[in-house]
């Protein structure tokens, strides 16, 4: 996933739907662990502000 920190409201909604535990809400900052993230895209659906984007190139390569 691509994460745009400038669109992030630090609410943590994304964490509640992340099946790989790749997201962490620290002192007002979301950290994304790209090594474990499997690009499922759930965070991009739940984020109220649209801070997550599925990386198009990565997903195309999966097809």
């Amino acid at each position: 996933m691509k994460f745009d920190i400038e669109r992030c409201g630090y609410c943590g909604a994304c964490i509640s739907v992340c099946p790989t535990g790749s997201l962490e809400l620290t002192e007002n900052r979301i950290i994304i662990e790209n090594k474990t993230c499997d690009d499922c895209g759930r965070c991009s659906i739940i984020c109220p502000l649209g801070a997550f984007f599925v990386e198009v190139e990565k997903n195309l390569s999966k097809l």
């Binding site: 909604a13 509640s16 739907v17 992340c18 099946p19 759930r42 659906i45 739940i46 984020c47 109220p48 502000l49």
Partner: peptide, 13 residues
């Protein structure tokens, strides 16, 4: 287990 499906969480502003 506190994992939710995307239809189970309200996205709010």
């Amino acid at each position: 287990n506190t994992l939710y499906g995307v239809k189970d969480v309200g996205s709010c502003v």
